[in-house]
């Protein structure tokens, strides 16, 4: 997460698309699964595509179709799906210092998913400020279209795809941990950050393994932040004694 800016080797749009390509390995298999489950839950192909276009948040969409199909009260569906997305509140403020004043950032915030945040948080500080909006537009548009396209594919032919090429679902999703790893490992340049990052990752993994996938990210991020401050405090205490 270097703050040294470097000129891009291609147009910002193309660079954004190139940087977002690893996301497809994670997005498309999950989107195909969503499309398949949505149709099996009674939604039409068009409705499935519109859900992915407008909500554009993986866990929320799975919860939405599952709760609606099970006949849950709609006010509860709204509360639960928005609660799952509450972690997104820290993404925009973290990117704000790197974004130039431009009204187009408003609509572009629709594309601020977990993965786009992770790439943007690492890449935006490294590029000249005037290229950032084009880079973000390229990366976010590719991710959004791949999510919509994957959902459509899943709704139309998901069952057959999963049977014919099961490796799509088994292997390609590893692109996501590999991507997050490449984005976060440069941060581990001192003991305090290494322990913080490792602690947050381990905590998130354990929470997911033990059946709490929806609170894993915000809870583990908070644990990591607490570890950061604890190490900072004990470091200061050690220096004073």
């Amino acid at each position: 997460m270097s703050s040294i800016t470097q000129p891009l080797s291609m147009t910002p749009w193309k660079q954004g698309i190139k940087d977002a390509i690893p996301l497809l390995g994670g997005y498309i298999p999950v989107a195909i699964s969503f499309g398949l489950i949505s149709v099996q839950s009674g939604f039409s192909v068009l409705e499935t595509i519109l859900i992915s276009t407008f909500i554009y948040a993986g866990a929320s969409q799975f919860l939405f179709v599952a709760m609606v199909a099970s006949g849950a009260p709609l006010w509860l569906v709204i509360i639960m799906t928005l609660l799952i997305n509450a972690r997104h509140v820290v993404y925009g403020p973290n990117l704000a210092p790197y974004l130039t004043k431009d009204a187009r950032w408003g609509p572009l915030m629709h594309g601020l998913t977990d993965q786009i945040f992770a790439i943007a948080h690492t890449r935006l500080p490294q590029m000249p400020s005037e290229t950032r909006i084009s880079w973000y537009t390229g990366a976010a548009t590719l991710a959004w279209l791949s999510w919509i396209g994957g959902s459509a594919l899943g709704a139309i032919a998901g069952d057959e795809l999963m049977q014919r090429w099961p490796l799509i679902n088994d292997v390609l999703p590893f692109a996501l941990p590999a991507l997050f790893f490449v984005l976060i490992v440069p941060r581990c340049n001192n003991l305090q950050w290494t322990v913080t990052i490792a602690g947050a990752a381990a905590c998130a993994m354990l929470l997911k393994v033990f059946g709490f996938p929806n609170i894993a990210i915000p809870a583990a991020a908070l644990c990591g932040a607490l570890a950061f401050y604890a190490l900072k405090y004990t470091g200061k205490q050690g220096a004073h004694s």
Partner: peptide, 9 residues
Amino acid sequence: PTMIAAMFG
């Protein structure tokens, strides 16, 4: 960064 680490986890 801790959110990204948690996504990794």
